[in-house]
Design a protein around this nucleic acid. Structure first.
Length: 192
DNA sequence: CGAATGATATACT
DNA sequence: GTATATCATTCGA
């Protein structure tokens, strides 16, 4: 495998990292099975300046602790009591920047994904949202704080650089409580 | 469109 | 230590 180097995540521009994660391959190896998926949608969370971030204003709690870690750490958070949301921590230690992975398309281990989601056929809904994506890949909060070159979870470089014209930017979703910051164009979508 | 669902944060005793 | 409000969503009417 060709896992992305730490230098990819450690850069200061979380928005650039988010954009460049599009087209990369998110891989997990859990319960003996390997699943891989091409990332198609991401959102940036710019730490203390961003009301939508859990770390807004420098808040630091047991839950958000992994966000303050070095770039290349996984931050998994349980939302609405049901959904596990997977984020990639960027920047250097002490700066709580992260990228939420919102959607992907299956690349390997489709059968395992279908079993985890209790579905029969591969369709858009299989990896169509942050909660669904995590469930299909078997990601849970126990992976929070794990580094992205571990045995259990990593992101590979596919060698493919998506055409810039296929990348769309837009406002983030589901964070209306964030006021003005909700409108920031921090969401990136890879169109097909 | 609206309910489900539980860990977490925050404000209390 | 205990209580209550809140939430980076999904699924089924």
């Amino acid at each position: 495998m060709a896992a992305l180097p730490k230098a990819f995540y450690a850069r200061p521009d979380v928005v650039a990292v988010s954009r460049e994660l599009l087209g990369k391959r998110l891989c997990t190896k859990l319960n003996g099975g390997v699943t891989k998926a091409i990332i198609t949608e991401t959102e940036a969370y710019a730490g203390i300046d961003d009301r939508a971030s859990h770390a807004y204003g420098g808040r630091r709690t047991a839950r958000t602790e992994p966000m303050y870690a070095d770039g290349g750490t996984a931050y998994v958070y349980l939302c609405y009591g049901i959904h596990h949301l997977f984020n990639v921590v960027t920047n250097v230690e002490g700066i709580p920047h992260a990228v939420l992975i919102r959607a992907a398309i299956p690349a390997e281990g489709e059968m395992l994904m279908l079993r985890r989601r209790q579905k029969k056929s591969v369709d858009k809904a299989l990896l169509g949202g942050p909660g669904s994506l995590s469930k299909a890949l078997g990601i849970t909060t126990r992976l929070t704080g794990e580094s992205l070159w571990s045995e259990r979870i990593w992101i590979e470089d596919t060698g493919i650089v998506p055409d810039v014209s296929k990348i769309k930017a837009g406002p983030r979703i589901g964070i209306d409580y964030a006021g003005e910051d909700a409108a920031r164009p921090y969401r990136f979508i890879l169109t097909q």
